[in-house]
């Protein structure tokens, strides 16, 4: 499965457009990470726990999008975008979406 945020694939032709596919996940932090972040808020710097948490969430959203693309018979997802929104304190939704196509 080819995943890209370009709209064209050099050297390939889009044979079939299969519509929008998307994947999302909602994640929340755990208390331990919160305490560490509280300490880090004094001296500043990277919150590694949070970086990993959001990265994992984004990877999962992407995987779910790819899975959906597979079920509609696509072999590529073009023009992929990410979006993040906070639902409530301590929880965030990750969304990945793109256009599923069949490349020839």
């Amino acid at each position: 499965m080819l995943v890209t945020n370009l709209e064209i694939v050099p050297g390939k032709r889009v044979g079939k457009h299969l519509g929008l596919v998307q994947g999302s996940t909602v994640r929340s932090k755990h208390v331990g990470k919160d305490i560490m972040a509280g300490l880090k808020n004094i001296v500043g710097g990277e919150l590694k726990g949070y970086t990993d948490l959001l990265k994992e969430a984004r990877d999962e959203a992407t995987q779910r999008m790819v899975k959906q693309a597979e079920t509609v018979g696509a072999n590529a997802v073009l023009n992929v975008r990410y979006s993040t929104s906070s639902i409530t304190q301590g929880a965030a939704e990750m969304l990945a979406y793109g256009t599923a196509v069949f490349l020839e």
Partner: peptide, 24 residues
């Protein structure tokens, strides 16, 4: 939005992220 060359190239999505906090 478009690659500077249209030669057949392989492509892949890459990403980098970081969470930072301000000091007191």
């Amino acid at each position: 939005r478009f690659p500077p060359t249209l030669d057949p190239l392989r492509q892949d999505l890459v990403a980098g992220s970081v969470v930072v906090s301000a000091d007191y």
